[in-house]
Computed example of a mutant assay.
Amino acid sequence: MTLLNVDIHHAGYEKGKAIIESILFSLNQGELIGIIGQNGAGKSTTIKSILGLLQNMEGTITFKEESKYSYIPERPIFYDELTLWEHLDFIAAIEGLDEGMYRRQAEVLLEQYKLSDHAHKLPNTYSKGMQQKAMLVLSLITNPSVYIIDEPFIGLDPNAMKLFLASIERERKRGAGILMSTHVLDTAEKVCDRFLLIHNGRLAAAGTLREIRDQCNLPEGSLYECFHEIAEGKDI
């Protein structure tokens, strides 16, 4: 089942100045797609276009009817005067979550991510790694159909990274689709079903690792090697 269809003709931050063009793909139930590209290639612009944050975008973004999505930004964002638990209460109220179920799930997530002792503190006082874990907890609490994640591994220690990967694997088994932008190519190669390699604002290659290898003429190449084949400007 398709959860998200993306057909971006062109998009940018100023009228008449496109940053990305011809970005076309779909995200299916239980699928994890990795968005790969150099800094400035257009990964974040693609994500912002999907989220409807760019006025200068032509194309169509279609989520499955009645589906919910969670967005995890590269730089965590919190309300200055709310504790982490108050953030959770706020989300639960907006989403109309059952209080008993929501509180039980919140307690489990806070324990898993070692944030129980910090739940009644302001997230803006946390370390960067703790802030990133708090954002993960806030995104997981709503049980969305789609996750849109921008550079999730920044600031996570190895244990937190392992926990995050286990969390998204559980969400995939539940049927959620995940769109993840990352520079951590060795991890992406292991966990993603398909990849979107964006270069100079265009979709330079797309598909499974085997399909990416074929497009890059690297039959045994790693995702890292395919990425550099594209980044170095060789013909594909």
Rank of each mutant, 00 (worst) to 15 (best):
Glu169Ile: 00
Glu151Lys: 07
Asn124Trp: 03
Met180Asp: 12
Glu211Tyr: 04
Asn143Arg: 13
Lys114Ile: 11
Ile141His: 00
Ala106His: 04
Glu211Pro: 07
Glu95Met: 09
Tyr147Phe: 15
Gly96His: 01
Lys114Leu: 13
Tyr147Ala: 05
Arg194Phe: 05
Ile168Arg: 10
Glu95Asn: 13
Ala204Leu: 05
Arg174Gly: 07
Lys190Glu: 13
Lys128Asp: 04
Gly96Lys: 00
Leu179Val: 07
Ala204Gln: 07
Gly201Tyr: 04
Gly177Pro: 11
Glu171His: 03
Tyr147Asn: 04
Arg210Tyr: 08
Gly96Asp: 01
Ile198Ser: 09
Ile178Ala: 10
Ile91Ser: 00
Leu209His: 12
Ile148Ser: 07
Leu110His: 01
Leu203Cys: 10
Phe164Pro: 04
Ala205Ile: 05
Ile154Lys: 12
Thr125Gln: 08
Ser181Leu: 02
Met161Ala: 15
Glu107Phe: 05
Asp157Lys: 09
Arg170Glu: 13
Ala134Phe: 01
Arg210Thr: 15
Leu115Cys: 07
Val191Trp: 04
Arg194Thr: 14
Thr182Cys: 08
Glu211Met: 05
Gln112Leu: 09
Glu95Ile: 00
Gln131Asn: 03
Val191Asn: 04
Gln105Gly: 00
Met130Gln: 13
Ile94His: 01
Phe164Val: 04
Asn159Glu: 12
Thr187Phe: 03
Leu156Ser: 10
Leu163His: 12
Leu165Pro: 04
Ile94Met: 09
Asn143Leu: 11
Lys133Glu: 12
Lys128Leu: 15
Gly207Ala: 06
Thr142Asp: 00
Ala206Ile: 10
Asp150Gln: 01
Glu111Gly: 12
Lys162Trp: 02
Met101Phe: 09
Glu169Asn: 15
Leu136Phe: 11
Glu111Val: 00
Glu171Met: 12
Ser116Arg: 07
Gly207Met: 06
Asn143Gly: 00
Met161Ile: 14
Thr125Asn: 09
Leu165Tyr: 01
Arg170Asp: 09
Ile148His: 04
Leu115Trp: 06
Lys133Gln: 14
Leu110Ile: 05
Pro144His: 02
Asn143Val: 08
Ala106Gly: 05
Ile141Asp: 01
Pro158His: 08
Ser116Trp: 02
Thr208Phe: 06
Asp157Thr: 06
Ser145Lys: 11
Leu110Asp: 12
Ala119Thr: 13
Tyr113Pro: 03
Gly207Asn: 05
Gly129Pro: 08
Ala119Lys: 15
